[in-house]
Amino acid sequence: MAAEIDYTKCNGCGKCYDLCPMDVITWNQEQDIPEITYPEDCWFCGVCWMECPKRAIDILYPACFW
């Protein structure tokens, strides 16, 4: 997984969903939470990570980039 959301910290503000340049994140309407739906499109720019007011998103560097 490229980015991981910690739902215990997420406050559902929607900034990550709003800002992701590659549209990796979608919005789960039922639960009112963001979801990492297209991780293969992530370019590891860190916009979601740096904009998250709760630091609820972690960027995980995968083995193939190591």
Binding site: A2, M22, E40, C64, W66
Partner: peptide, 17 residues
């Protein structure tokens, strides 16, 4: 630019979009 792109094919220096 990255070593491999087995799963993540968009790791460019500039925004891939």
């Amino acid at each position: 630019e990255e070593p491999l792109f087995y799963k993540y094919q968009m790791k460019y220096h500039w925004c891939p979009a």
